[in-house]
Design a binder for these strands. Structure first.
Length: 578
RNA sequence: AGCCCCAUAGUGUAGUGGUUAGCACCUCAGGCUCUGAAUCUGAUGACUCCAGUUCGAAUCUGGAUGGGGCUGCCA
């Protein structure tokens, strides 16, 4: 992946501007620690969907490896078979790939190291640093003590090395029931860090593992697996989020003890950073699951979901995600980023990349009374106003057109400069038109406009230099293609949502409308800007030439909406008030 | 309650003893415009507090305050 934001200049001597992790890396390279190598990893547990917070962790580890000519591993931390599955492995790989992080041929699984980990555990027993404990889970919890009180030593703590070795082997061979015994590290039951109070290294679980099958009935715990896997892979900088800070002493203890007995040769360094939170968004698996289970969203990859798959389906470009992640920065402070920053990055990218086309969400028919009945012109319109390399396309123009309902007002407020009776506006890239009259149905709804066009303004400008204040988009009614629009908005109503109670019922509005005929040839998963409406993305799965489905990635900035919100009344109505 | 971590505009981030405390997003005002978009210009807006060290502290020290984490045989 390209690291677009503030790429560090490796020749630069000073560290200024670098985040604290990069400073550590630069310093390690300078002092030739790890022979100058940089090697990172991303260690997901295959038990859920990757979300925006994971994206940050992936991007950080990958881009640091990139920037310092290092390597990046993908390693699945699959030590709890009761929750994990291969389906997640494939989904996670797809997400990481999409983001642009490349693990090349270094795809690993902690389960690849089960035998090695077992030997490491034996080495620790031999060193007198681990023992088999017969206490129940409840008893262990009780004896662990509390935040303020020390724990008490397990009565099994002083078993002989021989006995521990024998027991550990017999556990592996299946002589004991699930939960009847565990292997514990012998550290310090009085440590102020609860994690150091003789933590569990192995538990008995007769659960089939999706990769090792029934080979094992004991599985190593996270704490005993993670650092050891890092050491085995030669990871130099093991980056993780803040909640693992208190695990670091334990991480170091295991590696140091194993180093001391020569069972391990390398010591990685764990560094913690604060995780990414975004306003109007949650990443809690449990809370997101409520939305999925309750069918508030179509699934984990619903375009409203803060999952990587969801954002991909929404049409957020991977490059915009990277820009966003780069702008967010890396620190240890708790962060809550404005959702607007993400949107801004998405718009910035799409403004450059997306071809402009026209679509009408809420059609209002207009008839150009002085336009020949049977005439059709094919206007050549640029695909991108700022990038001529994107070429042009032909768009049909005829006597009967559609415009957006919101672009006409019978009794407009002062700053409204779109269409109203007697006013001239420009049809984008086409002609100036003037509204002469409108037709209402029985309910008073405006259903048709009568207009005239000025044939001398073809292309959208007047030879007499006449200016027009408003420009609106349009479609030729007989040529317009029917389409479905999925108008997405933020999933939650509140900036700091609690979950389901803050679900935004307007987060999805599905509507039928029309698009210009060129879109009949569009491919799934492509970006467009519908002029004056927003960025849309052809649905990756459902879009076809017979089923034109567009997901709204983002609206355009809408200054008019703000003005209108402040002064929603027309001149007349405001005068009445006074 | 014990231990650990964190503290700069609304949000995020830079700053490592001397700066008009920089940048981005947001907000506001204006210019430009065939998208009320984009773009350009400008403006508002911050060092949690108290001591100490120093000629000089956002930066160093101590304390206070505020926020977060830690008592799964989850990761």
């Amino acid at each position: 992946m390209k690291t677009s934001e503030n790429p560090p200049d490796e020749t630069k001597k000073d560290d200024s501007g670098l985040d604290f992790i990069r400073k550590i890396v630069v310093d390690d390279i300078r002092t030739n620690k790890n022979e100058g190598r940089v090697h990172t990893r991303f260690p997901p547990e295959p038990n859920g969907w990757m979300h925006i917070g994971h994206a940050m962790a992936i991007y950080l580890s990958y881009s640091i490896a990139q920037e310092y000519n290092g390597l990046f591993n993908l390693r699945f931390d699959d030590t709890d078979p009761s929750k994990e599955s291969m389906d997640y492995v494939e989904a996670i790989k797809e997400d990481i790939q999409w983001l642009g992080a490349d693990w090349e041929d270094r795809l690993y699984f902690a389960s690849d190291y089960f035998e090695e980990l077992y030997d490491l555990a034996v080495a620790l027993i031999n060193a007198g640093k681990a023992y088999i404990c017969d206490l129940s889970a409840d008893e262990i919890r009780e004896q662990r003590g509390s935040l303020t009180e020390p724990g008490v030593n397990s009565p099994y703590r002083d078993r002989t090395i021989e006995e521990n070795l024998d027991l550990f082997k017999r556990i592996r061979n299946g002589e004991f029931e699930d939960g009847s015994k565990v292997l514990r590290a012998k550290i310090d039951m009085a440590s102020p860090n609860l994690l150091m109070r003789d933590p569990i290294m192995y538990r008995i679980k007769r659960v089939s593992h999706y990769r090792t099958g029934t080979d094992w009935i004991i599985y190593p715990s996270y704490d005993f697996t993670h650092g050891e896997s890092d050491a085995i892979e030669g990871i130099t900088h093991s980056l993780c989020s803040l909640e693992f800070e208190t695990h670091r002493p334990l991480y170091d203890w295991f590696v140091d003890e194993l180093l001391a007995v020569g069972a391990l040769k390398h010591k990685p360094r764990q560094i913690e950073f604060s995780r990414l939170n975004v306003t109007y968004t949650i990443t809690s698996k449990r809370k997101l699951l409520e939305l999925v289970d309750g069918n508030y969203v179509s699934g984990w990859d619903d375009p409203r979901m803060p999952t990587i798959a969801g954002m991909r389906n929404r049409g957020f470009p991977a490059s915009a995600m990277r820009t966003f992640l780069g702008r967010v920065g890396v620190t240890k402070r708790e962060k809550n980023i404005d959702y607007g920053l993400l949107e801004s990055c998405v718009r910035e990218e799409l403004d450059q990349e997306a071809n402009r086309v026209m679509a009408i969400l809420n059609p209002l028919k207009i008839v150009l009374e002085n336009y020949p009945d049977d005439q059709v012109e094919h206007l050549e319109i640029p695909n991108h106003p700022k990038d001529i390399s994107k070429g042009t396309r032909k768009v049909p123009f005829s006597r009967e057109l559609y415009i957006e309902q919101e672009d006409f007002m019978e009794d407009p407020p002062k700053k409204f400069y779109r269409l109203t009776v007697g006013r001239e506006v420009r049809l984008r890239n086409a002609y100036f038109i003037t509204c002469t009259n409108f037709v209402k149905d029985d309910s008073g709804k405006i259903i048709e406009l009568q207009c005239t066009y000025d044939p001398n303004t073809k292309g959208g400008s007047s030879p007499d230099g006449r200016k027009v204040k408003g420009t609106i988009h349009w479609l030729s009614k007989p040529h317009a293609l029917e389409a479905e629009f999925r108008l997405y908005d933020r999933l939650f109503k509140r900036e700091d949502p609690s979950g389901l109670p803050d679900y935004n019922p307007d987060s999805l509005t599905t509507t039928k409308g029309y698009v210009e005929p060129s879109l009949g040839n569009a491919k799934p998963a492509s970006h467009y800007q519908f002029e004056r409406l927003g960025y849309f993305f052809t649905d990756p799965k459902e879009f076809s030439q017979d089923n034109l489905v567009f997901n709204r990635t983002s609206t355009l900035r809408d200054t008019w909406a703000k003005i209108f919100k402040q002064h929603p009344h027309s001149k007349k109505k405001r005068q009445k008030k006074k």
